[in-house]
């Protein structure tokens, strides 16, 4: 049995906004090949404000697909289309207090349905650019297609490389056999053989300064969203892969803090292309953190 959170179960047993929506003016139909699941998202958008006044779903899928659909409709109701488009699959998973790694694609399907429905409302055609493969790394939910593409794009040759670029294999290491197999297959395409004794190529070169700038930029991009909810975020320090931040106002100490941090972390991981952990620091640690920053 999957280790579903109480929130996933609750949304599965009592799905919100299920069933057809009369007068929907944005409809997104998407499926996830990896699960055979499929979802129809129906939006009612007010043309003047571009605000989503109602959202319904119909889902052919497992418990977490239904729960993710239900969560998505709750999240986006009342949002403008642009706000809704900023909702990530991680936001959906966070709303549900997390999903098992094997089930993260259910939240991805939700986000894609949203993009498709908005495109449909705007009279555009939506085409999906991402392809899912078999789940290889269960610690970080990385699938075979992502690993293959990353190996090809960066000419990777070792398991360590793959871990540096994708996180896959960086946890329990049980998937290393699978990663070696993918490496063997992709290397064979370019006429090379997988060599288990080969040294990893150095990690992608991003100097300290460039890295911190990138972190700052990413946080700047998220700031308006947080401020809209009456909160704010400050970068305190960067300590290896730990990014220390302080949350202010409505964000600080509220129940949504963990959710916000998860979202910030996900955005930073995407921006930096490496695994980082976002750690909140309070007033006391704040001062200490500042001192460290000054010393550094």
């Amino acid at each position: 049995m999957w280790d579903y959170s109480e929130k996933v179960k609750e949304h599965f047993y009592n799905p919100r906004n299920a069933g057809p929506l009369d007068g929907a003016n944005g409809i997104g139909d998407v499926g996830s090949i990896s699960c055979g699941d499929a979802l129809r998202l129906m939006l009612k958008v007010d043309p003047d404000s571009e605000r989503i006044t109602d959202a319904h779903f119909q889902t052919f899928g497992c418990g977490s697909a239904i729960a993710s659909s239900s969560a998505l409709t709750e999240i986006i109701k009342g949002m403008t289309l642009d706000e809704a488009l900023a909702v990530s699959n991680q936001d959906i998973a966070d709303y549900l207090d997390g999903l098992p790694p094997e089930k993260m694609h259910c939240s991805v399907m939700g986000r894609e349905a949203l993009q498709a429905a908005v495109a449909n409302y705007r009279g555009e055609t939506w085409s999906d650019d991402h392809e899912e493969g078999a789940l290889v790394c269960k610690c970080f939910a990385i699938d075979a297609v992502l690993i293959e593409d990353t190996i090809r794009a960066n000419n990777l040759g070792t398991v360590e490389d793959v871990t540096n670029y994708t996180k896959a294999g960086g946890g329990c290491a049980a998937c290393h056999e699978g990663i070696e197999e993918i490496l063997g297959r992709v290397l064979a395409e370019r006429g090379e053989r997988f060599d288990p004794t080969a040294k990893a190529t150095p990690a992608p070169a991003m100097g300290n300064l460039a890295r911190i700038r990138k972190i700052e930029q990413t946080i700047e991009q998220m700031r308006p969203t947080l401020q809209r909810d009456g909160g704010d975020i400050d970068l305190i320090d960067v300590d290896g892969n730990r990014i220390l931040v302080s949350l202010k106002g409505a964000c600080s100490g509220c129940q949504m803090e963990a959710v916000t941090l998860g979202g910030v972390q996900q955005k930073l991981i995407e921006a930096l292309g490496e695994f980082v952990k976002v750690v909140p620091v309070g007033a006391h640690a704040h001062a200490h953190g500042s001192a460290c920053a000054t010393e550094a």
């Binding site: 139909d29 998407v30 499926g31 996830s32 090949i33 399907m109 939506w126 991402h130 392809e131």
Partner: peptide, 15 residues
């Protein structure tokens, strides 16, 4: 009951 020709009536774009 199912939609008439269900696979055609609901044909999502698969990712």
């Amino acid at each position: 009951k199912p939609l008439a020709e269900p696979e055609k009536a609901f044909a999502p774009s698969y990712a």
